[in-house]
Design a protein around this nucleic acid. Structure first.
Length: 154
DNA sequence: GCCAACGTTGGC
DNA sequence: GCCAACGTTGGC
């Protein structure tokens, strides 16, 4: 079992949007950063657990949890000329960008803000704290357990 | 392969 | 809207 943190701008796609999807399951697409792509393509597995993080908004922080419910597969938006995520350099026989499906799990009963995260020595080593700008990042089991307690999810 | 210029992310 | 910290692009 592995743990991850996925960032999303809630104006674009919030944890409530995920919950409102049919079967509470949505496609995590639009990843266009190689570090994040490598994680999603090579390391993320069906069944892994995800902290759903809201970025670039009034309240930045961990809003809840979700579960990976598919293997990685090519992000269809890269082949869609209408999409802002269209990548004309990517070809279907060798796709550059990947997606997974996420299923809503729980809302944080207590929202965990970034400032709170930064104030906690137990979370000082999080990628979120050390390297701000990565949209998909690994979370250690220790961090996951600590955060689960803080936000009161099980 | 280096590196300057430019673009993006994301907190504040 | 600002700006720091990256990542990407492209000339050489």
């Amino acid at each position: 079992m592995q743990y991850w943190l996925f960032k999303s701008e809630p104006d674009e796609y919030s944890i409530d949007d995920l919950k409102a999807e049919p079967n509470q399951t949505g496609r995590w697409d639009g990843i266009r950063n190689y570090q994040a792509r490598n994680l999603i393509r090579d390391q993320i597995k069906e069944g892994d657990l995800v902290l759903f993080y809201h970025s670039s908004c009034k309240n930045v922080g961990v809003a809840g949890s979700a579960k990976v419910v598919s293997a990685p597969y090519p992000d269809p938006l890269q082949f869609d000329p209408e999409s802002k995520y269209h990548d004309p350099k990517s070809h279907p026989d060798q796709p550059k960008w990947f997606s997974v499906d996420l299923k809503y799990d729980q809302h944080a009963k207590s929202f965990l803000s970034l400032s709170k995260i930064k104030s906690l020595p137990e979370l000082a080593e999080m990628v979120l704290v050390k390297q701000g700008r990565l949209s998909i990042q690994p979370v250690t089991e220790k961090e996951w357990k600590f955060i689960s307690q803080l936000i009161k999810i099980s």
